[in-house]
Simulated assay, not measured.
Amino acid sequence: MIMPLGGDLDSRIRTAGMAWLRQRCTPENPVIRRGELLDFKFEGRAFPLIDNQLGIRKPQGMTAALSILTTYTSDGARAPYEDAVGDDGLLRYKFQGNPQHYTNVGLRVAFEHKVPLMWFFGIKQGLYLPFFPVWIVAIEAEQSQVAVALDEAQRHLLTEGPVSLIERRYSERITRQRLHQPVFRQRVIQAYESSCAMCHLRHRALLDAAHIIPDRDARGVPAISNGLALCKIHHAAYDQNILGIRPDYVIEVREDILEEVDGPMLKHGLQAMHDLSLTLPRRRADRPDHDLLEERYERFRSAV
């Protein structure tokens, strides 16, 4: 027999945590530091939203898990718990250690009672992008994992029989738009210290994470080394082959654009970028991949 959760107390804790995150994580600054999550207070008392050591937070006195956390790893490194997208387009979150550990049991209870959780996704050491509410919608014991829904549409996907091709593609699109794209954007912008790699504009709301090789391409992986932090005008110009980037990180402006006569935006915003060098991330591993830049530069040259 399933014992009831802490009723009103459980609901108040979840509601308070998510309300605080909505206020704290704005479109201008959607990320949050580990220390802030550990310092959260509920009704005047310390009540961390994440576990200090484990990836699953199942507070004492609560039956169900409150949050899950994905640790940040550099591109190419394997995460301690490797989460993936299933054939149904839903994300998976791995159990941690013994399936009977109290934290994993907490995930099962969250599934049984259909309670919402918070998911903190690492984008840099000690820095997280929160997703909430999310729901555990399936327990896959043989794979030691659970399926996680990011919204109401995904939440009911597995309750109505086998997933059709149309449903799977729709679910994959939700996962890409709701999690993969925001995580990629924040990782790239953090690597470039919230500054356009071309013009140094520092307004986060006006910055994009531009792909070197587009994400529709098989090689267009959501890795920092396949990304550039660009302001919206330079992102659009890069996508339209108005300007290109050589493998030695030097910017080229298309010849016909250099010869064009127009207003100050053309002169200072585009033509002035010609022959300038990109501002690169401090970490060498985060810098644009040479081979990807070369491939994209050849596409730019072919379009000239």
Score class of each variant (00 low, 15 high):
residue 109 V to E: 15
residue 145 Q to V: 02
residue 129 L to E: 13
residue 161 G to Y: 11
residue 158 L to W: 08
residue 107 L to V: 07
residue 165 L to G: 11
residue 140 E to T: 12
residue 143 Q to E: 15
residue 141 A to Q: 14
residue 134 V to K: 03
residue 151 D to I: 02
residue 111 F to A: 04
residue 151 D to M: 02
residue 125 Q to A: 15
residue 138 A to T: 02
residue 159 T to Y: 09
residue 154 Q to V: 01
residue 129 L to D: 10
residue 107 L to I: 00
residue 152 E to V: 04
residue 118 M to A: 09
residue 131 F to N: 01
residue 154 Q to A: 07
residue 117 L to F: 02
residue 124 K to T: 09
residue 123 I to P: 03
residue 115 V to H: 10
residue 162 P to H: 07
residue 163 V to A: 09
residue 124 K to I: 06
residue 110 A to R: 01
residue 171 S to R: 00
residue 123 I to Y: 06
residue 153 A to G: 11
residue 166 I to D: 12
residue 148 V to K: 01
residue 119 W to I: 00
residue 133 P to G: 08
residue 117 L to N: 05
residue 146 V to E: 01
residue 144 S to G: 12
residue 167 E to H: 07
residue 117 L to V: 03
residue 162 P to I: 05
residue 166 I to F: 13
residue 123 I to Q: 05
residue 117 L to Q: 00
residue 156 H to K: 04
residue 132 F to P: 03
residue 124 K to M: 14
residue 169 R to H: 14
residue 123 I to D: 02
residue 115 V to C: 05
residue 121 F to G: 06
residue 169 R to K: 14
residue 121 F to Q: 12
residue 132 F to R: 06
residue 145 Q to H: 09
residue 118 M to Y: 03
residue 159 T to N: 11
residue 138 A to F: 07
residue 141 A to N: 15
residue 126 G to L: 10
residue 174 I to D: 08
residue 124 K to P: 07
residue 171 S to Q: 04
residue 145 Q to Y: 02
residue 121 F to I: 13
residue 169 R to P: 06
residue 172 E to C: 11
residue 152 E to M: 06
residue 137 V to N: 08
residue 113 H to D: 14
residue 133 P to L: 05
residue 137 V to P: 04
residue 164 S to V: 04
residue 127 L to T: 13
residue 122 G to K: 14
residue 169 R to L: 14
residue 149 A to T: 00
residue 124 K to N: 15
residue 124 K to E: 15
residue 107 L to P: 05
residue 141 A to C: 07
residue 151 D to C: 02
residue 107 L to W: 06
residue 169 R to M: 15
residue 170 Y to M: 13
residue 152 E to Y: 07
residue 176 R to C: 10
residue 168 R to P: 02
residue 112 E to I: 04
residue 151 D to W: 05
residue 170 Y to K: 15
residue 150 L to E: 01
residue 139 I to M: 11
residue 119 W to L: 03
residue 150 L to A: 00
residue 112 E to S: 12
residue 117 L to A: 00
residue 151 D to T: 02
residue 138 A to P: 00
residue 129 L to F: 05
residue 154 Q to L: 05
residue 130 P to R: 03
residue 128 Y to N: 04
residue 111 F to G: 01
residue 160 E to Q: 13
residue 112 E to G: 07
residue 176 R to V: 08
residue 126 G to V: 08
residue 123 I to K: 06
residue 135 W to P: 01
residue 138 A to S: 11
residue 140 E to Y: 12
residue 121 F to M: 14
residue 140 E to C: 14
residue 175 T to D: 09
residue 113 H to L: 12
residue 113 H to A: 14
residue 110 A to P: 00
residue 125 Q to P: 11
residue 138 A to H: 10
residue 137 V to C: 07
residue 146 V to S: 11
residue 164 S to R: 09
residue 119 W to Q: 09
residue 152 E to S: 06
residue 125 Q to C: 15
